[in-house]
Amino acid sequence: MEHNVVIAGFGGQGVMLIGELLAHAGMDEGKEVTWMPSYGPEQRGGTANCSVVIADEPIASPVLTNPQAAIIFNVQSFDKFEPVIEHEGLLILDSTLVEKKSARSDLDVVYIPATDIAQKLGSSKYTNMVLLGAYLGKVAPITMESVYGALPIFLTGKKTDLIEINKRALQAGVDFVSKK
């Protein structure tokens, strides 16, 4: 079984971080994982994306031409990735920041006001976790426990205090998709 996802937005939105979190959690579960960033001048425009693959078998390519799923943080990334998502794939979109609607009828699209939800939890900084939560609620390539377990790797020192609120943000994402 292989799960893969592209996560894309602006640098500074925590795009790379939730990718790494996902990969770490997958590794801790004993799965094969890869994390692949966009690199070089591609970043100059301020956009950033990464691809994560979680699988039971050794992973062929960490580069995804047609990802099974995409978590999208901005319009540029919507335009870039929405057309290439695998047939009948999953699109998760921060509807607070991206006003566009997908024209593809085959996709499972989640319009989640992630920034609004994060702000209600205290800060738009948690938007990335809300979106990751929505993905995990839909796909569940790994357990929430593993994801929670990997949080302390990224939130160290003074940020340890933020672990709880990040968990709440993840859970809010899960709740949003499981309501329906």
């Binding site: 790494e20 094969e32 994982v33 890869t34 692949m36 960033p37 960490p62």
Partner: peptide, 10 residues
């Protein structure tokens, strides 16, 4: 190559 250089793997 750039792929092995840039990707993360356990």
């Amino acid at each position: 190559d750039g792929l092995i250089g840039q990707m993360m793997e356990p």
